[in-house]
């Protein structure tokens, strides 16, 4: 997350002290990503080193007042102009967890999905409630409008996750159905072969279970979608 550019954006409206920047950053984003004062000063020091801001005097307590430079303005404009890169996504713990749950012994991946869905939908309920409280914002209040945008981003993000989880579950169910059908097909073929052998038994001697010796485990059992539990 770019604290750096966030601070530059706030400084563009005028000189600020570090503590002021922290307060404004949080009120603009509804304290969704809280900053500590240390982070603010570390970032300001780097910005100063890179020539994006300069100090312009101090208050009585010795706090420096920061001012954006032309280089800082240029950097800020570039930031607004260029898209946020989505092609090198950060590691996603949930995606990693589901990938690991495929075939993990003793783990029903549907339980993993449901426990996440529970959490995600609950988070959405909470965000939605905050949003319901935030909708009578005045369009002139920058902080209110910004907070509403941030909240809605959280709602859309959790929604995407909930839908993705639904999709994962549907996908797994479909894969397991496909597998059941394949199994049936194979049994039929085996029976057909036995009938064609024409040994006079009319296919009546059938193994109770068409011994799957040395077969690969079925996709259903590989994805942890055994049918034992739900039906």
């Amino acid at each position: 997350m770019s604290i750096r550019h966030g601070l530059l954006a706030l400084l563009e409206s005028g000189p600020r002290y570090g503590s002021q920047l922290r307060t404004e950053f949080e009120s603009r984003t509804g304290a969704t990503w809280p900053l500590n004062v240390g982070q603010v000063y570390t970032t300001l020091n780097r910005l100063e080193r890179d020539g994006m801001v300069v100090q312009d005097g101090e208050d009585d307590a010795g706090h420096a007042l920061y001012v954006i430079t032309d280089a800082g303005r240029e950097e800020l404009r570039n930031w607004f102009r260029s898209p946020v890169d989505r092609r090198s996504p950060p590691r996603d713990e949930l995606a990693i967890k589901l990938a690991m749950a495929v075939g993990a012994p003793g783990i029903d991946i549907r339980d993993v999905i449901q426990s996440q869905r529970h959490h995600t939908v609950q988070a959405m309920q909470d965000y939605t409630r905050l949003k319901a409280q935030a909708t009578d914002v005045s369009p002139d209040n920058r902080d209110d409008v910004a907070w509403l945008l941030v909240l809605e981003q959280l709602i859309f993000q959790t929604e995407a996750e909930a839908r993705w989880l639904d999709h994962c579950e549907a996908r797994l169910v479909r894969l397991s159905l496909m597998n059941t059908q394949k199994e049936k097909q194979r049994r039929k073929e085996q029976e057909g072969a036995a009938d064609a052998a024409g040994d006079g038994t009319d296919g009546q001697i059938r193994p109770a279970d068409p011994a799957p010796t040395g077969e690969k485990p079925s996709p259903a059992s590989r994805v942890g979608l055994g049918r034992s539990r739900s039906r």
């Binding site: 529970h118 939908v121 609950q122 959405m124 309920q125 959790t158 639904d166 739900s230």
Partner: peptide
Amino acid sequence: HEPRFAAWADRVVFLRDGAVVDQTLRS
């Protein structure tokens, strides 16, 4: 089936195969 609309509820009940598998309360 839209999670974003379900999120307006006080309680979300999840059905699967005709049974309630889980439900959330608003925290």
